[in-house]
Design a protein around this nucleic acid. Sequence first.
DNA 1: CATTCTAGTTATAGCTTCTAACGAACACGA
DNA 2: TCGTGTTCGTTAGAAGCTATAACTAGAATG
Lengths: 223, 223
Amino acid sequence: MGTTGRTESPRERYRQQVREEVKEKAWQQIAGSGASALSLNAIARQMGMSGPALYRYFANRDELITELIRDAYRSLADAFAGAGTGSGEGGAGRAGLAALAQVLRRWALEDPHRYFLVYGTPVPGYRAPQDTTAITAEMMSVLLDACTAEAPEGREGALEEHLAGHREWAGSHPDAPPSALRLALAFWSRLHGVLSLELAGHFTGMGLDPARLYAAEVDGLTA
Amino acid sequence: MGTTGRTESPRERYRQQVREEVKEKAWQQIAGSGASALSLNAIARQMGMSGPALYRYFANRDELITELIRDAYRSLADAFAGAGTGSGEGGAGRAGLAALAQVLRRWALEDPHRYFLVYGTPVPGYRAPQDTTAITAEMMSVLLDACTAEAPEGREGALEEHLAGHREWAGSHPDAPPSALRLALAFWSRLHGVLSLELAGHFTGMGLDPARLYAAEVDGLTA
DNA sequence: CATTCTAGTTATAGCTTCTAACGAACACGA
DNA sequence: TCGTGTTCGTTAGAAGCTATAACTAGAATG
């Protein structure tokens, strides 16, 4: 399971190290003012080297941002995957829907700008389709584990019928009942609904507690 | 109900006209490549006048974008308000939740970038708090009309209790039952959840029909 | 040791927002 | 009708950005 590079020459080693530092500074900058304000020049300055040097490491600004998006996806997928291995449980136990929901919200609040990099307004040049969809499939797999365990019995509606015939996205769970597929999609879209409104500040000044709204949606999902 | 300017001098008239034309070009540009790619210079060029002339009409780029955001809010609020006065019904009849949901989705699909200007990633300098919250209150008023009519009876949960004590945001409907408040928030957050995922392209390649997902959420709300 | 390959440099083009200074056209009171 | 003042639009320019080109110093490799 080693990385793609084979012998890891000391040169390549240094290269990766610099790339990581660039991305680190980039995250700091994003955390401060969002991805649209990310400046290669500023990063270079901050690293003590001047402007065009960064183009040795990233072809252009879009490539850097695309990489950051990919890392954001990765970090969310890892958080999901690690949800089962929490304090109480022993090994890699299956995480319940409620636990996954908490992981998701915690991850989002930990760095809202990172959340928006994944689920916010899509920006023109960015987004690497192949990569991110594979990572999303990973998360869906974890989610579907929980959903097949917690989904209610029968309850066949129009949507379930549609989902039964369109389950390509749930490739990891070809035998999941339609009710589980539906639950997974509801989990995804509803929690994202509350979260994005909260993080974008649409609840501020309304005097209500986003955490309670979120909890209510989670309750509605697991009921 | 006239505009704020009083006597409408011919000079002011022309000024407003140019402002409108600028915003129009701005919308075209946004529709093409999103708000982040909006360029004052390009707009000026497109209008046959050169660069800094636009600064007679807008203090800076952020002011223009803020205005566009406000107009986007306005257009959504108008769409909501006009939902009752549809084809079949006579005058300004109350719109049902299902009708409002359709209006919302139609509005969003009509110009995704406009949707993201309102509900997408919040961008640094923009957003005029006072203005937009007032318009949101308008929409909430229409929404609460429908919700008080269609909300189920009792059903008191933890969230309803919280909402009963925090109803500042529903100022227009001080007597709305908590179940209606809850329904309105669920409508808002759930439909936004599906919509934003759809518009951001997170469903593409999954082989499922966003319209059906949306319809299913609407059904769940009105059930 | 010589060659090659690479990381970093400066210079530059072209784009952006935005300020400053100026000219020209218009509105308006005398 | 004639100033006078406000306003619109211009060009020039500062400061910032992305990105390319040409070059140099240093490390890796034959």
